[in-house]
């Protein structure tokens, strides 16, 4: 029996292309909130655009439906320490050092972690700095990240050029934090 996972046919070419270009924009301008595909869960769109039978995945239990579809499509499943893509909830970002961060010779062999958060605005405002952040700076206020996340992200920065790259999603929107981006709480007094 052939398990038909993706029934979008030829439209898929254009859907993937559009989603990737929007993801490219989000990845290039960190913290910029972008809709990947109107009305579709962005975390699923990222996986269907980038993952395939060559990319070991770790998918948290709370995304059992996506995991089942991935297994049926024969996408390889791996543990957290050896995945190319990880899909989890934002609350689980209190430990990002469990994911592969590459090696000095191959810093690209690191995990891209997709995390669904409560929202991409409305949280504590963070000032972003680093490549992709233009004049006038950029603030980003994701909602639903654990308290330990900032300390974990600072460690991720310290490992540069190693490190994980993060794609935060909420509904059909996403924003990216490549490893080169530094985060600072924008107003210390407001804590």
């Amino acid at each position: 029996m052939k398990i038909e996972i993706d029934q979008r046919g030829a439209d898929r070419i254009h859907e993937d292309q559009r989603a990737f270009r929007r993801l490219l924009e989000a990845f290039s301008y960190p913290g910029k909130v972008v809709v990947l595909a109107e009305g579709q869960a962005a975390h699923a769109v990222v996986l269907s655009t980038l993952a395939d039978t060559t990319t070991p995945l770790w998918i948290d239990e709370s995304f059992a439906d996506i995991r089942d579809r991935a297994v049926a499509a024969r996408w390889p499943m791996a543990d957290r320490a050896s995945c190319t893509f990880a899909l989890c909830r934002g609350e689980m970002l209190d430990r990002i050092d469990v994911f592969p961060k590459g090696t000095p010779a191959d810093p690209h062999l690191s995990a891209t972690v997709i995390a669904e958060v409560t929202g991409l605005s409305g949280g504590a405002a963070l000032n972003l700095s680093g490549p992709g952040i233009g004049p006038g700076a950029r603030t980003f206020a994701p909602l639903g990240l654990p308290a330990a996340f900032l300390a974990q992200w600072t460690c991720n920065n310290a490992a540069y050029p190693l490190g994980i790259d993060l794609i935060l999603t909420a509904g059909d929107r996403c924003a990216c934090l490549p490893r080169s981006v530094r985060l600072e709480i924008s107003d210390v007094r407001s804590r």
């Binding site: 898929r12 993937d16 490219l24 990845f27 980038l50 990319t55 690191s110 790259d165 490893r179």
Partner: peptide, 22 residues
């Protein structure tokens, strides 16, 4: 499409580590 997907993954990693040859 398989080749494009592979190149797209490479592009994102290249942007994550500016100047590094992936």
């Amino acid at each position: 499409e398989d080749s494009k997907r592979s190149v797209r993954r490479t592009i994102l990693k290249a942007l994550a580590v500016p100047g590094y040859q992936v």
